[in-house]
Simulated assay, not measured.
Amino acid sequence: MSREIILYIAASVDGYIAEADGSIDFLGGGIELVEEDTSYQELMEKIDTVVMGRTTYDQVVNELSPDEYPYEEQMSYIITSHPDENTEKLMFTSQNPVELVQKLKKQEGKAIWIVGGASIIAPLVEAKLIDTYILTTIPKILGKGIPLFNEFNGPVALKVEQVYVKNDMVYTTYSNK
Rank of each mutant, 00 (worst) to 15 (best):
D25V: 09
K46M: 14
L90P: 06
V34A: 13
I141M: 15
E151K: 15
G29N: 14
A18Y: 12
P139F: 00
D84I: 02
E151S: 15
I130T: 05
A157E: 12
P155Q: 10
D58R: 00
V170G: 08
T87L: 07
T55K: 09
G154R: 09
E35S: 06
G117F: 05
G28K: 02
Y8S: 07
S23E: 01
L104W: 10
K89R: 15
V163W: 14
I79G: 01
G145N: 03
I130A: 04
T49H: 05
L43A: 07
M91F: 08
F149N: 08
V125N: 01
V156N: 14
G53P: 07
Y40G: 01
E151C: 11
N96P: 14
E35Q: 13
T173N: 03
M169S: 00
L33K: 07
D168R: 09
K128L: 09
V165M: 13
T93F: 10
D58T: 02
P123Y: 05
N167H: 01
K177Q: 08
A118P: 12
G117L: 08
D131Y: 05
Y71H: 01
G109C: 13
S119V: 15
L90Y: 10
Y16R: 06
Q41K: 15
E19R: 07
L135P: 04
Q102W: 11
E4N: 02
S12A: 14
K128V: 00
D67R: 04
T172I: 11
S2A: 13
E63K: 02
Y174H: 05
E19G: 05
